[in-house]
Amino acid sequence: MNLEHFLKSGAPGWMGDKGLDADIVLSTRIRLARNLDGYRFPLSFTDHEAIQVDEIVTDAMHQISNKEHNFSHFTIKDMPLLQRQVLVEKHLISPLLSKKEKSASVLISNDETISVMINEEDHLRIQCLAPGLQLIETYALANKLDSQLEKHLPYAYNEAFGYLTSCPTNVGTGLRASVMMHLPALTMSKQIKVVTQMLARLGMVVRGIYGEGSENLGNIYQISNQVTLGKSEEEIIDDLQSVVVQIIQNERGAREALLKNSRIALEDRFNRSLGTLKYARIMTSEEAAACLSNVRLGVDLNIIKEVPLNVLNECMILIQPGFVQQYAGTTLQASERDVFRAKLLREKLNAKTQKLMEEGEERYDV
């Protein structure tokens, strides 16, 4: 497929509402860091080595492509900056890869659930994504792809340390498992700091929506393992699964407490946010994310009933700066993006409301 397919496809398949505990866990991600034996790592390799690695990995990927997962290859330096930004916003490439000017590329499966980044911090990073809480299933998919590639690629591996990587924190399994969680109740009740401290003691890390160095938008947090050495892949997955299940229980408890003690205030907050999304003429990404978070919580608590979660998922993607400009068809200044973002949200939410009203009238007429 050409790049336009991935740029204009809206919310990716891994951001659906069908996964386990999808009201709190938006998505699951498994990432495996690997390097090729006999080549210097990307931090110090030459342009010639970068080209060689790209060609070797791409050839291996094409050999294992099949009807279930067919991959398209794109070279980063050939992409305009805006297109790179859109792929970052869809979590198909990392912010670091988007800035690469040496030979770096990405292979993306047609359903956008798998991407393999070449010559980012490591020679290749295998990434698999799924909706909801699916750590075991998503790891199985990543592990299968990794095993297939290992038949064609000479991985850099040490019997004592495991897989060798550019960053010492990834040495060992090279596995980074993460979940993206919507935690508005824990944030509103000011319990999120306690959760973050607890996670740090357990060897977990909490980051923003785009990983390391990114900010928290719309009460969305990315929680992942920090240790990859000295534990097996299964232990890492089990530890994160246990932690996430506990956080889900805490978030549900916080939601119940808020609903019991502040229902009218919550209803006011949710409906004001929905009104803002439907009628505002200027909207920053921060305000849009906050309003979408409120409306999402309202839907989860069955207070707001006219907005499906899949529409909110799409809106979460639409509000990002790259997507706003992609839809506008041109680069925009920040103030212009705020105006166009509000327009996109009005069109998306009001169109859905109108459709639901018409469907309701048809049922009533019958």
Rank of each mutant, 00 (worst) to 15 (best):
V206D: 05
G208N: 12
G211L: 02
G211N: 02
E212A: 10
N216P: 11
L217T: 08
L217F: 13
I223H: 02
N225S: 05
N225G: 05
N225R: 02
T228P: 00
L229I: 07
L229D: 02
G230W: 00
S232C: 08
E234N: 15
I237L: 10
D238T: 13
D239G: 07
L240K: 07
Q241C: 09
V244T: 12
V245H: 14
Q246R: 14
Q246W: 13
Q246A: 15
I247H: 04
I248D: 05
E251A: 08
E251D: 09
R255F: 05
E256D: 14
E256Y: 10
A257Q: 14
L259G: 09
L259I: 14
K260R: 15
N261I: 11
L266Y: 09
D268S: 14
D268Q: 13
N271S: 11
R272P: 04
S273Q: 02
G275C: 02
G275S: 06
T276F: 09
L277E: 09
L277Y: 11
L277H: 12
R281S: 14
I282P: 06
S285F: 09
S285T: 15
E287Y: 02
E287K: 07
A288H: 02
A289V: 07
A289G: 08
A290L: 13
C291H: 12
L292K: 07
V299H: 01
V299L: 00
I303C: 03
I303F: 02
I303K: 01
I304A: 00
E306N: 14
N310A: 06
N310G: 03
L312Y: 01
N313I: 00
E314Q: 12
E314Y: 05
E314F: 02
C315L: 07
C315Q: 00
M316V: 03
M316P: 01
M316G: 11
L318F: 08
I319S: 00
